[in-house]
Amino acid sequence: MTAQPRLFSPKVLPMAPGAQPPGSQGDGVLEQLGLPAERAELVAEIRLGFPVVVVERLVNALQLPQHLLLRIARIAPATLARRRRTPDARLSPDESDRLYQIASTFRNAVALFEGDAAAAAGWLKEPAKALGGVAPIELLDTGAGAAEVSDLIGRLEHGVYA
């Protein structure tokens, strides 16, 4: 006799008036940075290159020194200064993609902290035992590191701490 797999079916609870659905608490992060929230528009904006002002907005949102964000995004300060002097003042698509990786992780951290951007920014800068004692922000300079931080956020959202 073979055992039948049991399917898990979560209960759907009614939401309180004015409450946000789970995961939506970080949805305003991209808009605050001046970036489109809709995926196709976002891809087009990355391909065009983000406006340089996104760097300053992300620095303010993350409460980081600009030189640290530039190091993580692998943008030379001289390159940023040169881009600011161009008529359209845009980053390259590669630079924009790396900034999006950071912004997306921040958005997920804000959702983890139920909309508290300051707490999320603080968490990103604190060493995490689950990341070998490295601050999550320090891992966002590579795709693999960003995936590791995203995995950690997912585990924390589901109460899996190890």
Rank of each mutant, 00 (worst) to 15 (best):
M1F: 15
T2L: 15
A3Y: 14
Q4Y: 14
R6G: 11
R6H: 12
P10D: 04
M15T: 11
P17H: 15
A19G: 08
A19M: 12
P21H: 00
P22D: 03
Q25Y: 09
D27C: 07
D27S: 12
V29N: 06
L33P: 00
G34Y: 07
L35Y: 05
E38T: 08
A44I: 12
I46S: 01
R47W: 07
L48S: 07
L48H: 09
V52R: 07
V52S: 11
V53Y: 14
V59T: 12
A61W: 02
L64K: 08
R71H: 10
A73K: 01
R74V: 06
P77T: 04
P77A: 03
P77G: 04
T79Y: 00
A81S: 14
R82F: 08
R83I: 00
R83S: 00
R84D: 04
T86L: 05
D88C: 04
A89C: 02
A89M: 01
A89L: 04
R90F: 01
S92E: 11
S92R: 12
E95I: 08
S96Q: 05
D97C: 05
R98A: 02
Y100R: 04
Q101Y: 12
I102F: 08
S104N: 15
S104A: 15
T105P: 02
T105A: 15
N108T: 12
A109R: 01
V110C: 02
A111L: 02
F113C: 01
A121G: 09
G122I: 07
W123Y: 08
P127V: 09
K129G: 11
A135L: 08
P136G: 05
I137F: 09
E138C: 04
E138R: 08
T142Q: 11
A144P: 11
G145Y: 09
A147I: 14
S150F: 12
D151T: 15
G154N: 14
R155Y: 14
V160C: 06
V160S: 07
